[in-house]
Amino acid sequence: MSRQSNHVQEYCLTVIIWTAATMVSIPFIWLMGDLLWNGWSHLSFNFVFSAPLNAGREGGIGPILISTLLLVGVCMGVAVPMGMGTALFLSEYTRHDHVLGRLIRGSLDVLAGVPSIVFGLFGNALFCQVLGFGFSILSGGLTLACMVLPILIRTVEESFRVISREQRLSAAALGLSKSTTIRTILLPAAIPGLLVGGILGLGRAIAETAALIFTSGYVDRMPESLMDSGRSLAVHIYDLSMNVAGGNPHAYATALVLVSLLFMINLSSSWIASRWTLSNQLPT
């Protein structure tokens, strides 16, 4: 291969790669710009806190924000204790290569890949019908909990695993019981990981639509209890854009609220993660 053709090849590749990177960036910038441009003008204090009128064409998203919070609250309220317990079991009560541990981990890996619409079907069948919760925030929140559980467990287990062997051995050498070791040494050390996992799960729960449309329903009134149907922000966007003629302006504004929420969540989780790795690198 001559030096000349080598140069040409190198040049072409550089152009191709920069083009690809640009092609990836443009839609992103376009999408964000579009949301900001069209959403910003409708965004106001009033919009965020007042109730939707005329199927959402007018008014705001107050009750929808509350429903979203309740959904996420139910979801995290169930997923966090379950995730902590499972992660503890996987890292402290089974060996890494133990059959039961491997089975549970494998099934969680698969669960993480299950499409959200399938979770929706499952939630509809189990929570709405068999358990009789109907279309309710409770059903939706429990369905979301099933969805975020795998990612939560993965992160928390990881944070238990980085606690050094020596710490565990020296706790045992002092005759500390397992529950004391977990309470005083392992749990405090795992808090950042738990936060990161919780925040990631929170992000997934807030972004979810397909699993909610037939578990928590469409109702856009202010929910009075967990047994009421409630509409999340994501479902609101879907409904406004697909089923309500003239709903686009408010769909834009809602999408802007949703995306800003998610960005804040994303930023805080990477902030915690970076502080956490920093503090782990301190000489001990």
Binding site: I104, S107, L108, V114, L121, C146, L149
Partner: peptide, 19 residues
């Protein structure tokens, strides 16, 4: 802890069973 882990691990089976 064992109970919670078994529940979480059994979730996949539950989903498949319901489907």
């Amino acid at each position: 802890v064992r109970f919670l882990a078994l529940t979480a691990g059994g979730l996949l089976l539950l989903v498949i069973a319901f489907l």
